[in-house]
């Protein structure tokens, strides 16, 4: 269906074929897999970009995506399609597992001076990596003995900007104990909270597409990857590829924490499953 306006024709619907082609394109570039059940979500976002780029229709918008050497439009559409829901101290038991079991296990094998590298992938608007930093400061007795590097990456450039800015609304900090909120944040006038600059400065944010091998290859010798609530948007082949990439970003013996409803068991057998007191995690074997 097309509605004819005064000056130009704006498509208001997407054909099955166009929908499939578009999803296929996004899938190949990002690993995110959308079935028909997500059409209600995709269609308005796609049509908005078609209109804003003044494309004559979905077909020509797809060509624009394919031949846009700058990658700028891909970035915009990917930003529009990601689900960025996150909050501080989400699935707290995994942070407890980190300080109670994972880190003690890891540092046994480290020499003093060697860094401990933790990667929040994907980090969305930053709640997860900042939670990691705060949790370590609050709960790890050895925090002063080690150089801790926290890396944080996401494919979505818009959320990365917000993460670097470090301003959060009340809902996002809801689960933080009052005392913690007081120690690491400054209240703003509009019921939002600004995280301390020292914390902001301590986290290294970067744009990474997990499905891009070249980008992933730049990350090496990671001790722990928090990979929570992203693989649920992938299909099995992209999950396997992501698991294979992450395997090689880790040091032998390094760990991956997935979201609580996620499991490696159906798509990758590269890791050993480890049960600690607070959580099930996956470990890259030593050999």
């Amino acid at each position: 269906m097309r509605v004819t306006g005064a000056t130009k024709t704006v498509p208001t619907a997407v054909t099955d074929d166009e929908f499939r082609k578009f999803c296929d394109f996004i899938y190949r570039r990002t690993g995110m897999s959308f079935g028909d059940s997500k059409r209600y979500f995709i269609e308005p976002r796609l049509l908005e970009r078609v209109a804003e780029t003044e494309s004559s229709g979905v077909q020509s918008y797809l060509s624009l995506l394919r031949f846009d050497a700058t990658g700028r439009e891909l970035e915009v559409i990917v930003n529009a399609l990601t689900v960025n829901e996150t909050y501080f101290y989400r699935e707290e038991h995994q942070f407890a597992c980190l300080t109670r079991s994972i880190l003690p296990d890891l540092v046994k094998r480290k020499r003093p001076g060697e860094p401990v590298r933790i990667w929040s992938l994907p980090c969305s608007t930053g709640e997860e990596p900042y939670s990691l930093a705060i949790w370590l400061l609050e709960h790890w007795s050895e925090v002063d003995r080690w150089d801790i590097q926290i890396l944080a990456s996401d494919i979505d450039t818009r959320v990365l900007e917000r993460a670097r800015e470090g301003i959060f609304d009340a809902r996002s900090v809801n689960r933080l104990p009052k005392a913690v909120l007081g120690r690491y944040f400054q209240p703003m006038l509009d019921d939002r909270w600004r995280i301390l600059d020292t914390l902001r400065g301590s986290i290294d944010f970067s744009r990474v597409n997990v499905s891009d091998r070249g980008q992933m290859a730049a990350f090496r010798d990671i001790d722990v990857i928090f990979c929570r609530n992203m693989l649920i948007y992938f299909d099995d082949v992209s999950r396997r590829e992501a698991a294979e990439s992450m395997f090689h970003c880790l040091r032998p013996g390094g760990f991956i924490c997935l979201g609580h409803s996620e499991s490696m068991s159906r798509f990758s057998s590269l890791f050993d499953v480890r049960r600690f007191e607070d959580a099930i995690v996956y470990q890259r074997p030593f050999t």
Binding site: S263, M264, S265, R266, S269, V273, R275, I280
Partner: peptide, 13 residues
Amino acid sequence: AFNGLEALEKALT
């Protein structure tokens, strides 16, 4: 459980 890996995870919990 669907396979041995899922079974290990379940048996451990």
